[in-house]
Structure formats: structure tokens, C-alpha cells
Design a protein around this nucleic acid. Sequence first.
DNA 1: TCTCATGAGTCTTATATAAATTCCGTAT
DNA 2: ATACGGAATTTATATAAGACTCATGAGA
Length: 182
Amino acid sequence: MISIANAVGSGDLGVELDVAEVESDLDLPYTEYDPSNYHGLYLRLVEGGPLITVYRSGKYIISGCSTFEQLYETNDAFLTTLSELDIVDAETETGFTVQNVVCTAQLDDPVDLNTLSIALGLESVEYEPEQFPGLIYRPADHPAVLLVFANGKIVITGASDVDTAEDAFKHLQKQVTTYLEQ
DNA sequence: TCTCATGAGTCTTATATAAATTCCGTAT
DNA sequence: ATACGGAATTTATATAAGACTCATGAGA
């Protein structure tokens, strides 16, 4: 009932890098390094696949994955590629961690966002339709942020695992059901 | 027929959300 | 000098506005 749209993870290679040099050493379908635009080196191991942003410090971010499996596989492939070029040791432990998961879900029915903002409690809601069509809900006891749209579509973001996102969504569903009954 | 204008329809961008990262500018 | 905020990236979501293309009509 909820599906992952984007998973983001980060790790640390533990070595300082000359990212311009790394870019030229790699033979990838996509690389981009333009310090005047951004100081991170962008890499894609697969065309159209997840994006890896590598920094001078050796820290890196992988984004654009639609499953955790793809995220970890991308991380493994990235480390393998780097170790083959002797940029890092094959045994490098990067402490790769999932940082954020963006999920989508759908409520059974359309919702009136003005009514819902009152039902959820104005203190935890931001809803300014002229600025953005979605209602922004930050549940007090769930570490995630939900975007609720009038047609019932939901975006859950800010959670570091799917269970947390799912709990937050279930909580929202319960609140919506309660408000419908009143 | 050719050119210009206007209309319609499509496409892009901005708006907002989270997280990691580093660097640059500003403010104290 | 230190501290802090904004910048770019990804992704779903939905609105509006502006940019843009193509067509058709009218006037010359």
C-alpha cells in the first residue's frame, strides 16, 4: 500500500579524494563535475540509474533508488569500481546508511484539506494552497513528514526506513477515518 | 500567397518536503 | 574569526504561470 519512490543513503570512503582525478579515472556512462555549479562529483554507474555524489572528503551520497536492494547494490558496485582502480581498499568499511526514504501512498477517498488541517491539529499542519497544493503534516510522534493532496495521494518523506513511513501513514489513515466519522 | 496576429494546446519551471554532503557568502 | 544559511541532487505529489510551438484566420 505504500511504495518507495526514492531512497537516499550515505557513506564515507575514509580517504580524501581529488574528485576531478576520480572523474577522469572512471569510465562511466555519466559523470559530471563542475565546481562552479556544485562542488560534488556526480556519477552514474548505469545510465539513467541512481546518482552518486562524491565529495573531496571521501564522503558520498547515493540517491534515486526505488528499492533498498538497489541502493545497497549500487553501493557495492560503486565500492567495487573504486577498489578496482585502487582508489579505495577492497575491505573499506564505509558505514553506508539509509538516510531518507520517500514513499507514496493513496487514501481510499479524496479529502477536504481545510477540514483535515483542523482535524490533524493546526499546530502540526501547514496548508497554504496558493503556495503549494499539498497539506504538510508533521505528526508529533512519528519521525516523518507527510504531504497530503486533495485527491487522496500521499507522499511520506523524512523517514529512514519503510516501517517508520508506514506507521506514519497508518496514523494519518486513522486520523482521516476519525474525521470522516464526525 | 505571404505575413502577422491570436488562439489553443503543450512544455517547463516554480512552489514545498526530507536527507546526506561541502563550500561560499554574509553576519555577528 | 566563527557561525549560520543557502546552494545542487533525487523522488513522488499538484497547482499556476510563463514560455513555447503549431495552427488557423484575416488583412494586405
